[in-house]
Amino acid sequence: MSGTFYNEYEVFSKRAPDKGFIHHFSLTAPNDEIAKVMAQENFLRREPVSDLWVVRRENILTLSDGEKQTLQRLDNKDYRNTKGYGYLRKKWRMYEQNLLDEKEIMGWAKE
């Protein structure tokens, strides 16, 4: 059985400069350089690509079954979100002011 020709690489790409990387699929290659020249044409033949990451799978830290248990949490964390402060809308209205909500604040970028 030949093993080392088939190193595993995971491929990630960005559609546009202002986007984040997303994961696609994996490929096998004998080494990093060959993996890099094969990545785009294997998984991104039809979509725009502004950047590419090719990562050796062995360098990715993954979670074990047990560790995945750590991902769970209670649904009692409204205080981390605007949802926990929804009453403010009514309050501000009493003072004849609008609530500076996410939509409003994110819109300032365009001002």
């Binding site: 020709f5 490929l27 096998t28 094969m38 044409e41 294997n42 033949r45």
Partner: peptide, 11 residues
């Protein structure tokens, strides 16, 4: 010689 290369060079 390799499936991934087949796909890449076909482009």
């Amino acid at each position: 010689p390799h499936i991934e290369e087949d796909v890449a060079s076909a482009s």
